[in-house]
Design a binder for these strands. Structure first.
Lengths: 84, 84
DNA sequence: TGGGATTTGTTCGTATGTATC
DNA sequence: TGATACATACGAACAAATCCC
């Protein structure tokens, strides 16, 4: 899936959707960080700010947790308390 | 008062402090918007984003309310319900 | 009715620096 | 020390609400 920089859907929303789907498909191993924010920038060709916002969305949804200096981690489904 | 772009205190925090003091001194007439965000940008030589953040702080403090397309308004002291 | 001007709000990219591990 | 998350700041473009003539 790719990011459309022209359309009306914000880039960070698109990126969040991509990651959300990958997470729910279990494409990321547990207890290990998903690709770093820098990697996401490069993979999808978006800015740091857009990655920040995308991850922020997923964090608020309870799908991931971030750990300063370590990485972004997927929250196991049974531990999710979505405070949407 | 001026903004120090070099120091450790964020620009937007400094700007919020300036405006907060002016508001509490009653320097802005009631029922009329305070200087527009664009004016604040020019007056203090800061970016739109910094003005945005400064006003956001004051809004969260309950000191001002913003009205899309109209301006930023001082909340009368007796109506402030600071949900800090 | 209409359309331009004003004003707040959002998004994006870039750059730089700080904090944590 | 290096990798990483996070914060700050700027500029630019555009969208959306309001106002005014």
């Amino acid at each position: 899936m790719e990011i459309d920089h022209e359309g009306r859907t914000p880039v960070y929303v698109q990126l969040a959707a991509i990651l959300r789907e990958q997470i729910e498909r279990g494409e990321f191993p547990p207890d290990r960080p998903i690709p770093t924010k820098k990697a996401l920038q490069q993979t999808y060709g978006v800015s740091q700010g857009s990655v920040e916002r995308a991850v922020d969305l997923l964090r608020k949804e309870g799908l991931v947790e971030t750990s300063f200096g370590r990485g972004v981690f997927v929250v196991p489904p049974e531990e999710r308390h979505t405070q949407n």
